[in-house]
Every structure is written in structure tokens, then in C-alpha cells.
């Protein structure tokens, strides 16, 4: 593990039953680095980032996040989850709470923040994702793009050092993808450490410091966007790129 890594995966292996989803995955992420992970479906990219905040448990290898090793130790898991924010493909907003309550819930209950302060924080986050006027609505009343932006605000309210995005735009109608990506670009420019699983190659080209290509549970290729898109090494990467770029 190199000195300045904030996330480090070393020889991580994981199985679902007999099926091996992660095979000897090694990944080092530096502070403020933006990683875009892509690959065909079933390649283990979601599983990999879900291991980073322990939504999935890895069976072999070592995962260290901001100096904390992820083991069965519940205290460690709690500390890591406070460091890491996550945005899901299906938004996963809490439908019985208003937008504002969705955002203030964790600061109030996990960080024991006073309610007034948490609400101010929520409004600030909503301004960052550009929908302060939706604060008192319920998730069901928002469009998909707005819901996903609320989900981002909800994660940011915990002031994480790292943000994980698990296909954040895959469930969105095409005209809403941009509004979400814009927020993510802002976030990247603000210096957030990000790991993004996405097939939005335009986003990857503008934002990513490094591209990671996965297939069948393995990291096949790791390269700068420039090299990745223009001069990929592996044939598998070439095939994948040709399929998603020229469909």
C-alpha cells in the first residue's frame, strides 16, 4: 500500500455462492483522485465499490479505507461508512420522508447535530445540487434526475471524504442525465475523491484521472483516459469500447 492512498484494495476475492465475482482485485486510489470504473454487466464493478463501504463483504484480501481496515469489526465499519458516501443506481431515497428529512436524518442521528443546524446544512447541500426549491416535497413527487441529485445531497451532508457512485445515471431518462452529471462534475472540481461506475464515456473523458476496466471479476486494464480511449492495451477493452462507442 502506497503512502498517499486513501483507498487500497489488495488481492480482494469474493464469491456469491460458488460463483467468484471478484478475482484478485488490486486498486490504489489517491486522495482527490477521480476513478471511473467501466466494464460489461456482471463484471464485478458494482460489487467492488460496494465492498469499499462494506455493503458487500469480501472473503479474502485486504481493504483499507482512510487508514481503517475493513474487517468484521463493527466499529471499523461504522467509521468507514462515515468517511464514504454512496449514490445508487435506484436513488434509494426514503419515500416516507421529505427531501429535507432525507438529508437531515443522518446528520441528526449519526452525528447528533442539532435539528436547526442540520436543516441549514440540508439547504446548503440542496443549493449545491441546484434544487433548494424542492426541500419540502416527497421523493415520489420529483423526477428521476431530481431524486438522484437529492441522493447526492444526502450523501454530501455527512461530509464524506470519498464518494462512490454506482451507475448513477443508468436509471434516468436521457434528458435528465446531464443535470446529474453536471453536479458530479462540480463535485469532482471541488476536489472530492470519487469512484464512479458508469458508462457515460463523455463524463469519464472530462473528469477521470484514471480509467479502470473490469471483466469477469478482474481488473483488466488501468490507464489514463487519454491512453484508455485512444490506445487501449487489451483486446477485451478494445472490443468493449467499440461496442459502447459505436453502437
Amino acid at each position: 500500500m502506497s503512502e498517499d492512498s486513501i483507498i487500497s484494495l489488495q488481492n480482494v476475492n469474493k464469491w456469491f455462492g460458488d460463483f467468484q465475482v471478484l478475482k484478485d482485485v488490486n486498486l490504489e486510489v489517491k486522495k482527490k483522485e477521480r476513478i471511473v470504473v467501466c466494464g460489461p454487466s456482471g463484471s464485478g464493478k458494482s460489487t467492488m465499490i460496494r465492498c469499499i463501504n462494506r455493503l458487500e463483504e469480501h472473503q479474502e484480501g485486504k481493504i483499507v479505507v482512510d487508514g481503517i481496515e475493513l474487517t468484521g469489526n463493527l466499529k471499523n465499519i461504522d467509521s468507514v461508512r462515515k468517511e464514504v458516501g454512496m449514490v445508487f443506481q435506484q436513488f434509494n431515497l426514503f419515500p416516507h420522508l421529505s427531501v429535507k428529512e432525507n438529508i437531515t436524518l443522518a446528520p441528526i442521528w449519526v452525528k447528533k447535530m442539532p435539528k436547526v443546524e442540520a436543516e441549514e446544512l440540508a439547504m446548503k447541500q440542496l443549493e449545491i445540487v441546484k434544487i433548494p426549491e424542492q426541500a419540502n416535497k416527497f421523493p415520489g413527487q420529483l423526477s428521476g434526475g431530481q431524486q438522484q441529485r437529492v441522493a447526492i445531497a444526502r450523501s454530501l451532508a455527512m461530509n464524506p471524504n470519498i464518494m462512490l457512485f454506482d451507475e448513477p445515471t443508468s436509471a434516468l431518462d436521457p434528458e435528465m442525465i446531464k443535470e446529474v452529471l453536471d453536479v458530479m462534475v462540480d463535485l469532482a472540481e471541488g476536489g472530492m475523491t470519487m469512484i464512479v461506475v458508469t458508462h457515460e464515456m463523455g463524463f469519464a473523458k472530462t473528469v477521470a484521472d484514471r480509467m479502470v476496466f473490469m471483466d469477469e471479476g478482474k481488473i483488466v486494464e488501468e490507464a489514463s483516459p487519454d491512453k484508455f480511449f485512444n490506445n487501449p492495451e487489451s483486446d477485451r477493452t478494445k472490443l468493449f469500447l467499440s461496442q459502447i462507442l459505436h453502437q
Partner: peptide
């Protein structure tokens, strides 16, 4: 998952 990921 969302509840866990925000640290509840």
C-alpha cells in the same frame, strides 16, 4: 443499503 451507507 442507503440507510447503512449514511451510517445509521
Amino acid at each position: 443499503e442507503a440507510a447503512q451507507s449514511v451510517g445509521l
